[in-house]
Simulated assay, not measured.
Amino acid sequence: MARARIPDDVGRDAVDLAVREAASRDDIATAVRYTLQLLAEHSSGNTLEVRVPPFGAVQCIEGPRHTRGTPPNVIEMDAETWLALATGALSWADAAASGTVTASGQRADLTGHIPVLRLPH
């Protein structure tokens, strides 16, 4: 069964709180899930799994389909790093070089797929 879609107004408000203020854990969770939802919608597929523990994970990007066990292409990071990537505050190249993300597999690259949401300044 598919998860319920987070409405855009709720998701955008949560992202705004999470990146600009001392947000609650619930706001951070909603912001992460919403931006992962946007990634999966804009870059649909099953080649890459993006994980932001403990809040969520999605499969995305077209290519060879993964169905069982540990996916061959995985990116994992904390919520702060993911939200910075998702909103364009951090580039994929900078995140990968800094060591704040772990990426394994030939297709473990978000170049061209982020940011998924730009916030007004």
Score class of each variant (00 low, 15 high):
116 V>S: 05
61 I>K: 08
11 G>I: 00
2 A>G: 00
37 Q>T: 06
109 D>G: 04
50 V>P: 05
20 R>T: 15
45 G>E: 14
46 N>F: 15
41 E>I: 02
102 T>C: 07
10 V>N: 01
44 S>K: 07
109 D>Y: 09
30 T>N: 02
25 R>G: 02
46 N>L: 15
25 R>I: 07
8 D>N: 11
22 A>R: 13
20 R>M: 11
15 V>P: 01
40 A>P: 02
32 V>F: 01
101 V>L: 14
34 Y>Q: 00
70 T>A: 14
92 W>Q: 01
12 R>I: 15
25 R>H: 00
88 G>P: 01
55 F>Q: 08
121 H>C: 04
79 A>N: 05
90 L>S: 05
91 S>L: 10
59 Q>C: 01
90 L>K: 03
57 A>R: 12
7 P>T: 06
6 I>Y: 00
30 T>E: 07
48 L>I: 13
40 A>T: 11
87 T>C: 05
15 V>W: 06
101 V>G: 08
14 A>T: 05
108 A>Q: 10
17 L>P: 07
26 D>K: 12
94 D>V: 11
39 L>W: 00
20 R>A: 15
12 R>C: 05
67 T>V: 10
34 Y>P: 04
31 A>K: 00
45 G>K: 05
113 H>F: 13
18 A>N: 08
101 V>R: 07
52 V>C: 06
83 L>F: 07
94 D>W: 01
93 A>F: 06
103 A>L: 09
18 A>V: 07
80 E>C: 03
98 S>T: 10
60 C>D: 12
93 A>K: 07
117 L>M: 11
112 G>R: 06
74 V>Q: 13
55 F>R: 02
57 A>I: 02
89 A>Y: 01
76 E>Y: 01
103 A>E: 14
92 W>C: 02
63 G>D: 15
98 S>M: 04
100 T>P: 00
119 L>P: 06
67 T>N: 09
11 G>K: 03
99 G>L: 08
61 I>C: 10
99 G>W: 09
10 V>Q: 10
28 I>N: 01
8 D>L: 10
26 D>R: 10
62 E>I: 06
28 I>H: 02
99 G>T: 14
87 T>Q: 04
106 Q>P: 12
104 S>D: 14
32 V>E: 09
23 A>T: 03
93 A>R: 10
73 N>H: 14
87 T>V: 08
41 E>R: 04
28 I>P: 04
6 I>E: 01
104 S>M: 09
118 R>W: 04
45 G>T: 14
63 G>V: 13
30 T>M: 05
18 A>K: 07
60 C>V: 15
120 P>C: 11
26 D>A: 06
75 I>D: 12
119 L>V: 11
14 A>M: 10
53 P>I: 06
63 G>F: 13
113 H>A: 15
23 A>M: 04
43 S>L: 09
68 R>P: 01
79 A>D: 13
109 D>I: 07
50 V>F: 15
34 Y>K: 03
